[in-house]
Design a binder for these strands. Structure first.
Lengths: 128, 128
DNA sequence: TATAGTACTTGGTATTGCATAGTACTATAT
DNA sequence: ATATAGTACTATGCAATACCAAGTACTATA
């Protein structure tokens, strides 16, 4: 196990989420999505994104239309469907939940090993 | 594809992260971890956590010691190693990166379909 | 005709979360 | 003594996805 692998695991599911978020702001074709993701510091491989878009399309969350390109082959412009919007809302809830958990755990006080002998560390004041 | 599946995908990698965060605050055995996770609104299955702990131990991020239980079989108390702390720091960086991306994408202005005909949506003022 | 650039496609691999069933130890009740 | 319940840990098989790598197809230019 190395850090790259874990990062890659962390991204599972996040990419669907990110793509839907991005397309909410306007239709785009795959290469465009990749470069916009890069702007948001998220590097996505072609071999990851293309199958992902196909999955989302097959599940009815996205549709696409062909458009001619000023240079090169035609482009598949993806846009989000109303079902996609619904899904996106649920994904946001999931994200908030995970985010909440991470923040909670992250705010637990760090207790160095020599201090945690026999006594349970006192949980911080934390209200739901 | 359903929402539960995506939620489950989203958790990939997060669980390692969460377990390390939790153990940073004090040693714990598996059942204890499960119940503390529940406090943080993260439901983890036994069949998920036990193999995960074994993986982390095999990779040198955790160690464990046996301790007798006041009732029931002895317990494996896991504690985080210095390598584990190192990993944890890197995981926090990864989390921050993903979190940054999601927030960035989430703050893109929503553009309803009828408004995004031929013109690229104006990206929001956004500084790195 | 050949080359470069853009865009999309297609296997194969590895990892991980989950469900399910099973093992082992202890204490209590009959 | 034996049976039962509770706690804790283990093992197996499945499904889903990120990544890598190689390949296809279309267009414009030299």
């Amino acid at each position: 196990m190395n850090i790259d692998n874990l990062k890659s695991q962390m991204r599972k599911g996040m990419l669907e989420f990110s793509v839907l978020l991005l397309l909410r702001g306007g239709d785009a074709y795959a290469s465009e999505i990749i470069s916009r993701m890069k702007d948001a510091r998220l590097i996505v491989m072609e071999g990851t994104l293309y199958p992902l878009l196909t999955r989302l399309k097959n599940d009815g969350l996205l549709t696409y239309r062909w458009e001619e390109s000023p240079a090169g082959p035609p482009r598949k412009y993806y846009s989000i469907t109303s079902l996609g919007h619904e899904f996106l809302r649920q994904l946001q809830d999931s994200w908030d939940e995970i985010s909440h958990t991470v923040n909670h755990l992250r705010n637990l006080p760090y207790m160095p090993p020599e201090l945690r002998e026999d006594e349970e560390p006192q949980p911080p004041a934390y209200e739901e």
